[in-house]
Amino acid sequence: MGWGDLGVYGEPSRETPNLDQMAAEGMLFPNFYSANPLCSPSRAALLTGRLPIRSGFYTTNGHARNAYTPQEIVGGVPDEEHLLPELLKGAGYASKIVGKWHLGHRPQFHPLKHGFDEWFGSPNCHFGPYDNRARPNIPVYRDWEMVGRYYEEFPINLKTGEANLTQVYLQEALDFMKRQQAAQRPFFLYWAIDATHAPVYASRPFLGTSRRGRYGDAVREIDDSVGKILRHLRDLRITENTFVFFTSDNGAALISAPKQGQCSTHPRLCRWGCPGDPGISEAPSGPLTHPG
C-alpha cells in the first residue's frame, strides 16, 4: 500500500473512513519508515526491532536468508533472533500470526518456532498460479498443518480479481481475539494480510466499488476489515487496554498499475522493491496487542 492511499494522507476519494477515523482518534507517525523496500527484510525489522541486515536479510533476493521466494530461497530468520511474540510470551501473552510470514518456509523457520502460538496463512505471498510440477503453488497453513494452496483450495481469480482471502483472514482475527478474551488472557495479533500485493484481489462485495480500480477495491476491503476489528474490540470491552497499530511493510507496488488500479506514493518517492523507498506500503502488517 502506498503512503498516499489513505484519506488521512490526502487521498482525494476518501475511501478509507475507518482508518481515517482511527488516525483522527489516535496518533500519526509521519516519520515512521519501513526498514527496507522489500518484504522479507522489512518484516524481519518489524518483528525484531533491528536493522534487517543484522538478521541476515538483504534487499537483493539472491542472498540465502532473504526468504523472498520459498521455492528458491532456503534461509530464514536465525534462531538467535528474539522476535516480539517471544518476548511477549514471557509476560503471559498468547500470540497469533494471520497471513503472510515471509521469514523462511522451512520447518526451522516456522512462526511457531519463533514465539507464535498460532498461525493461519502462508510463508510467502500469493504468487502464481504455478504448474505444480517444476514449481508448486504456495501453501497455506493452520499451525503446522498445510490446509491447502493458493489458486487451489484458496482460489484467486486473476481475470476478475475475486478472492475471499481477506474475509477468511478477518474471521481468523476475530475468532482469536474472542477466544483470548474469554480466557482472560492478554494477546498479540499480527494481522499480516496481502490483499494490495500484486496480483491484486478483493472479495465480491468490494469488487467494482472503488474509483481507483481493483487496487482501490482491495484498499476499501482492508479499511472495512480494520473497522470490524475495532468494533470487535469494543464489543469485547477491551478497547481501553488494547494497543492497535496500522502500518505497512515497504512501499507502493506500482507493478499493479494500470490494469489493476493505481496506488499512490505521494508525497514520497520510489516504490515497493526499489532501493531507497521510504514507503508505507503494500501489505498492511500491523501488530495488535491486548495487555490485559
Rank of each mutant, 00 (worst) to 15 (best):
P70W: 08
E172P: 01
Y33N: 11
T196P: 14
Q21I: 03
G4P: 04
A45G: 12
G121R: 04
F246A: 12
S225V: 15
G213Q: 02
I138C: 00
F206D: 08
A257W: 14
H232Y: 01
N66A: 12
F243E: 03
L233W: 03
A192C: 14
I138R: 00
D117T: 06
S55L: 11
L103S: 07
G279C: 06
R212Q: 14
S225R: 07
Q181C: 13
E80N: 15
A173C: 11
G261R: 04
P12F: 03
T242F: 02
Y141L: 04
A45D: 03
T289C: 13
G161K: 03
Y150F: 11
M146I: 10
P267T: 03
R237G: 06
T69I: 11
P107T: 14
R231M: 09
W119A: 04
D117N: 15
K89Y: 00
D20Y: 11
K259H: 13
G115Q: 05
G273Y: 08
H266I: 12
T16A: 00
G261L: 05
G286D: 06
N18H: 15
P70Q: 03
G161D: 00
G7N: 08
V98R: 02
P278Y: 09
T289R: 02
A252L: 00
N36F: 08
T289Y: 06
G279A: 11
G104P: 08
L230V: 14
G90Q: 11
L269N: 06
E80H: 13
E282F: 04
